[in-house]
C-alpha cells in the first residue's frame, strides 16, 4: 500500500522523484503526443477515414498513404487516427466510470462502519465474476438492442464503457478503503472529527485530497486496462462494428490480410501497444513518485 507521507511532502519532492523515473517521463510525453494526434490529426490529414477509392486498393506504404490502404482503397493512416479517437475515448470514459464506482465504494466502506461489511462482500462478489466470458456474453447478446435504442455508435459505446467500468472497479475500492481506514487513525482526522466536522466535510477537506494520489495512479493503470479490454473485445469481433473501427477492430479486420498487406494489422497493434505501455509507465512513475520509499514496483 502506498504510504501517505508522500502527500504531505513538498510538491517539489514529488516532481523530482517523478523526473528521476525516465520511463514515466517519456511515457507521459508520448501519451500526450498520441492524444494530440488523434484529437487534431483527423482534421489536418487530407484523406477522410472511410473514403472509398476503388482504384487504390491494397496499396503498400507511400507518401500519400504512409500506412497503405485497405481492400476498398481506404487510407489506413486516416483510419488509425479516427480509430484512436474512439479507442482512447472508450478508455477514458470506462476508466472514469470505474474510478467513480471504486472511489465511492471504497470511501463509503472506509467511512461508514455499518456499510463496510456489505460493500466489501459486494466487492468480493464482483471479484468472483468471470469477467472476460461475461463481457463476451453480454456484448454479444445485447449490442443490437442498445444499438436500436441509442443509435449505431453510441449504443455499443455505452455498452462497452459500462461493462468495462462495472467489472474493473474492485481493486480501486479495496485500495481506497484501506487508505481511508489508515487515514481515520491519523491525528489530524481525529482532531477534525473531534472539532465537529461533518462526515461530508471530512471527506471533502481531508480524505479526498489525501487519497488523490492513489486515485490518479489507479486511473492511469485503469486507462491501460480499459484500452486492452476494448481492443480484445474488438479483436474477438465483439466490440465496435466494422463501420466504426477502433484500433482493436482494425487489427481484427487486418488479420485476414496478413499475407497481402501486413501493415493493416501491424500499425493498429503497435498503436495499442504504445498507448498501453506509456500509460503503464506513467502509472508506475506516478506511484513511485508518490511513495517516498521508492522503487517498489507494482504491488
Amino acid at each position: 500500500m502506498t504510504d501517505l507521507l508522500a502527500l504531505n511532502a513538498p510538491p517539489t519532492g514529488f516532481w523530482r522523484r517523478f523526473q528521476r523515473h525516465k520511463g514515466a517521463v517519456i511515457g507521459g510525453g508520448v501519451l500526450a503526443l498520441i492524444l494530440l494526434a488523434v484529437l487534431i490529426g483527423p482534421i489536418l490529414w487530407p484523406h477522410a477515414a472511410g473514403q472509398i477509392n476503388v482504384t487504390a486498393r491494397n496499396l503498400g506504404p507511400s507518401l500519400s498513404h504512409p500506412m497503405g490502404t485497405d481492400h476498398l482503397g481506404r487510407d489506413l493512416f486516416a483510419a488509425v487516427l479516427q480509430g484512436g479517437r474512439v479507442t482512447i475515448l472508450v478508455g477514458i470514459v470506462a476508466m472514469g466510470l470505474s474510478i467513480l464506482i471504486g472511489a465511492a465504494v471504497g470511501i463509503l466502506a472506509g467511512m461508514v462502519r455499518w456499510l463496510d461489511a456489505p460493500l466489501m462482500r459486494l466487492t468480493d462478489l464482483f471479484l468472483a465474476l468471470p469477467v472476460l466470458p461475461l463481457l463476451l456474453v453480454t456484448i454479444m447478446l445485447w449490442r443490437d438492442s442498445l444499438r436500436g435504442l441509442f443509435g449505431a455508435e453510441a449504443g455499443i459505446f455505452l455498452l462497452i464503457v459500462a461493462m468495462i467500468g462495472l467489472t474493473s472497479w474492485m481493486q480501486t475500492a479495496r485500495i481506497l478503503r484501506a487508505e481511508v481506514l489508515a487515514l481515520k487513525k491519523r491525528e489530524f482526522v481525529t482532531a477534525a472529527t473531534a472539532l465537529g466536522l461533518r462526515p461530508w466535510g471530512l471527506i471533502r477537506r481531508h480524505i479526498l485530497p489525501n487519497v488523490m494520489g492513489v486515485i490518479i495512479v489507479s486511473a492511469t493503470l485503469g486507462l491501460a486496462n480499459a484500452i486492452i479490454t476494448e481492443s480484445a473485445l474488438s479483436f474477438l469481433g465483439l466490440g465496435f462494428p466494422p463501420d466504426h473501427p477502433t484500433w482493436g477492430r482494425l487489427l481484427f479486420d487486418g488479420t485476414e490480410y496478413l499475407t497481402l498487406t501486413p501493415a493493416r494489422a501491424i500499425w493498429p497493434g503497435l498503436m495499442i501497444t504504445l498507448t498501453v505501455l506509456c500509460a503503464n509507465y506513467l502509472g508506475d512513475g506516478l506511484r513511485d513518485a508518490l511513495d517516498p520509499r521508492g522503487g517498489l514496483g507494482r504491488k
Partner: peptide, 13 residues
C-alpha cells in the same frame, strides 16, 4: 503491455 492478440498475430506472420 503488449496485447497477446497483437503479439500472436505478429508471430504468425
Amino acid at each position: 503491455s503488449v496485447p497477446s492478440f497483437f503479439l500472436g498475430v505478429v508471430m504468425i506472420v
